[in-house]
Nucleic acid binder design. Structure first.
Length: 180
DNA sequence: CCCTGATTCGC
DNA sequence: GCGAATCAGG
């Protein structure tokens, strides 16, 4: 595989859209995320809009002795990554209005440890309990750790699997115990 | 342990 | 120029 003009263009596009290096590597195919990152650097488009604050200037102790002197830091890039996704400043009044904590549905209170992941973030070991309306932007999955196996975490598995027989058996058992 | 980008340097 | 190995960090 090599960097054709088309692949480079796609790389630029996806990178500017904020996709991770690994996501881009998957999209392109035939390359690793390392290759993508390397190319990004060579193209000089690293450093997407991230921390507006000046760099803390870390890397005080190189773990290896550089074979070449560090080249002087590149001039501050004039072009920042896309700002389209930058959070909009919210008027103070609006913030205060929003500050009042709202009562949460019982489910959210019972499962505060919910990770609430998107489908892209969903992993093999994560609970697939859907939260919200699929197709909506804020649709998520639970994302908590699943039990021994199965698609749900223990909490949602308990909700999902409630065979009628079990419920009646439990009820009967309780009645029996209460009598004894 | 999963992931992220950054850097180095043999090829 | 390329990208695996490695690093630092979340």
């Amino acid at each position: 595989m090599h960097w054709t003009d088309e692949r480079v263009e796609l790389l630029k596009k996806l990178w500017s859209e904020g996709l991770s290096a690994s996501a881009i590597a998957t999209e392109l195919g035939g390359v690793t995320r390392n290759a993508v990152i390397g190319k990004v650097h060579r193209l000089g488009l690293s450093g997407r809009a991230k921390t507006p604050a000046p760099a803390p200037q870390r890397r005080a102790k190189p773990t290896r002795t550089p074979s070449h002197p560090l080249r002087p830091q590149a001039p501050t890039p004039v072009i920042r990554g896309n700002t389209a996704l930058a959070p909009q400043l919210t008027p103070l009044a609006a913030v205060e209005e929003q500050a009042e904590p709202k009562l949460r549905p019982v489910e959210d209170v019972v499962v505060p440890m919910s990770e609430r992941v998107t489908i892209m973030e969903l992993r093999e070991h994560m609970c697939r309990w859907p939260l919200g309306d699929p197709g909506r932007e804020d649709f998520r999955f639970c994302g908590s750790r699943v039990g021994v196996q199965g698609p749900y975490c223990s909490h949602h598995a308990a909700i999902a699997y409630q065979p009628i027989m079990d419920r009646r058996r439990d009820r009967d058992k309780e009645r029996r115990l209460a009598r004894a």
